[in-house]
Every structure is written in structure tokens, then in C-alpha cells.
């Protein structure tokens, strides 16, 4: 038998994931998907003395790399920064991200992966408050959605206004990066 390189079988494996016993790491710039549809901005207008006024963007589809359906997810981390650009009033804003395998499920707290549990900041008039989204490892709560070809993100800002002035402004995603580490299974 004449050997010239590797076989068709080799190519199939290479094309899928040629990482031997290593992991496949997917670094996804989530913000680039959200910013393109202007869904990175969540405006809010909260009347006086209203608590837990929730506003959100439209769920956004984030493409992943297909073909990892049989793989085992090792870790899932999300890190980023949100700016609270407040124009009037003073209050507090909590920020949350819902991640799910389809658009509708991002509205279901039971079905969605919910991060982070409690990022919040106090805001005052004409100030921009950057709030880092700390590295959050979803390994404990993850499910198989991260081995699919796409996931859906929905951001929610929950504003509380204890004062007599309308709290108005918008939350802007400045950066949001998703890292999914899977142990690929080719067969």
C-alpha cells in the first residue's frame, strides 16, 4: 500500500476537531452580535417611587460552531462590562442576563441560564457608571445548549426609583465575551 499522507478518515477527524485528547475552546464575542442589531442598549424611564421596574432587549441569537453535539461541556464563562448611562433621577439598577437554547426560553427563568445573580449599582443624574460583569462560571448550572450551533441572550435591567424624580437613561453592553470549553467527542 502506498501512503502519501493521511486517509479520508483522518481528514474527517481533522475537519471536525484535530485536537487529540485536548479541549475545544470557543471564544465568542457576544457583544459584536448584539451591537450589530443595536440591541446592546436598553433604555429605561422609571416613574417616581416605583421599584423593580424591569426592561429588556429583544433576545439575540449568538452563533456558535456547529458539530459539538456529542461533546461534554467542561466550563462556560461569561465576562464583560455594562455601562449605566443615567440622565435624570437617582436610583439603583440591577442587571441580569438570560441565556437559553431558543428565543422563548430566555423569558423563562426556570429554563434559562441566569447570570449574573446580582450585579447592581446606584446611579445619579448625568453620570455614566461602568459595572463590570465578573467572570462567571456556569459549569454548575450549564446544560447542553452550549454544544448547539447557536444560543440566545436576553439582557434585563431592573430599576428601582425611591425618589420623586423620574429615573431615565439606558444600559449599554460595552463588552461581553463567552468562553465555552468542551471535551470533543468525535464518534
Amino acid at each position: 500500500m502506498t501512503f502519501r499522507w493521511l486517509s479520508a478518515l483522518a481528514f474527517a477527524s481533522l475537519a471536525a476537531l484535530s485536537c487529540g485528547a485536548g479541549n475545544a475552546i470557543f471564544d465568542v464575542d457576544v457583544a459584536s452580535f448584539i451591537q450589530s442589531s443595536s440591541a446592546d442598549t436598553i433604555p429605561y424611564v422609571v416613574p417616581p417611587f416605583v421599584s423593580n421596574f424591569a426592561v429588556s432587549n429583544v433576545p439575540q441569537k449568538i452563533s456558535l460552531v456547529p458539530g459539538a453535539g456529542g461533546s461534554a461541556v467542561d466550563t462556560v464563562t461569561i465576562v464583560g462590562t455594562t455601562n449605566f448611562v443615567n440622565t435624570t433621577g437617582s436610583g439603583s439598577i440591577a442587571f441580569q442576563i438570560y441565556v437559553a437554547g431558543d428565543s422563548a426560553s430566555t423569558y423563562s427563568a426556570g429554563a434559562a441560564i441566569f447570570v449574573p445573580p446580582g450585579i447592581a449599582a446606584n446611579v445619579s443624574p448625568n453620570t455614566t457608571t461602568p459595572v463590570p460583569i465578573p467572570t462567571t462560571n456556569l459549569a454548575a448550572t450549564l446544560d447542553s445548549i452550549f454544544t448547539k450551533s447557536a444560543v440566545w441572550f436576553r439582557m434585563v435591567a431592573t430599576v428601582s426609583n425611591a425618589g420623586a424624580t423620574v429615573v431615565q437613561g439606558h444600559a449599554v453592553i460595552a463588552a461581553l465575551n463567552l468562553r465555552v470549553v468542551v471535551n470533543p467527542k468525535l464518534f
Partner: peptide, 28 residues
């Protein structure tokens, strides 16, 4: 193996496994 995914970017870094990708025609 690292996959970089953005709305307008996609990159695959196979690291040392790049050596396994044949530059020419290959087969048996």
C-alpha cells in the same frame, strides 16, 4: 483547539495540531 467567533470574524487555531493538516494532496 481554539475557535474565535464574532459576528464578523471566525478563526481556528489548531495550535500544535496544525502540523496534522496536510499542505498538499493526501490519501491512501
Amino acid at each position: 483547539v481554539a475557535f474565535g467567533v464574532g459576528r464578523d470574524s471566525f478563526q481556528i487555531n489548531l495550535g500544535a495540531s496544525q502540523a496534522l493538516v496536510p499542505a498538499g494532496e493526501f490519501g491512501i
